[in-house]
């Protein structure tokens, strides 16, 4: 296993630890993307984030990957800090497996990702209000009915 794979595995493992203990093994081992959508989204996008973190931090790649993960966690049973906390774990995981990397620059990139993650989290939560509003509009959208309901 390459160092990068090892980091990814550990990062993934630390991330899914936040889920109920009974489910962790399922999230980790079930590889069918439709049977295990949460695990799949995490794995796929953590990989992108890690590659970017060790590489060029290309916004066009980090942003969608972060979005995909945060979108899931924003509606699960997590507080805001829990929802984005997985980013910070990367610091110790990289330190553990690849001490040759420049701690300072990794740390900076992790911070950068974390800030983006917070933004994304807030955006998702705002989106909830927006879609809630849209839904109630659609639920009663025939003007004639709206005018006469309850009359």
């Amino acid at each position: 296993m390459s160092t990068e794979d090892a980091i990814l595995e550990r990062w993934f493992a630390r991330t899914v630890e936040a889920y109920p203990g009974e489910t962790v093994l399922f999230l980790t081992t079930e590889r069918d993307q439709f049977r295990n959508p949460v695990g799949h989204i995490l794995r796929e996008n953590l990989e992108v984030l890690l590659r970017e973190l060790l590489g060029g931090m290309e916004l066009s790649r980090t942003k969608p990957a972060l979005e995909a993960i945060i979108r899931v966690r924003a509606v699960q049973d997590f507080t805001a800090t829990q929802a984005v906390g997985f980013i910070f774990m990367l610091r110790s995981v990289v330190g553990e497996f690849a001490p040759e990397h420049d701690v300072l620059s990794i740390g900076q990139k992790v911070d950068q990702l974390a800030l983006m993650a917070f933004d994304e989290y807030v955006r998702c939560r705002e989106k909830l209000y927006e879609i809630r509003l849209n839904e109630s509009r659609r639920a009663l959208s025939v003007p004639a009915a709206m005018a006469r309901v309850g009359s």
Binding site: R14, T15, Y19, G21, G95, V103
Partner: peptide, 16 residues
């Protein structure tokens, strides 16, 4: 190395 003060996610306790 970096400490884990940032680690806010706790392993949820095994439940019954």
């Amino acid at each position: 190395m970096t400490d884990d003060r940032h680690q806010i996610e706790q392993k949820p306790p095994r439940s019954d």
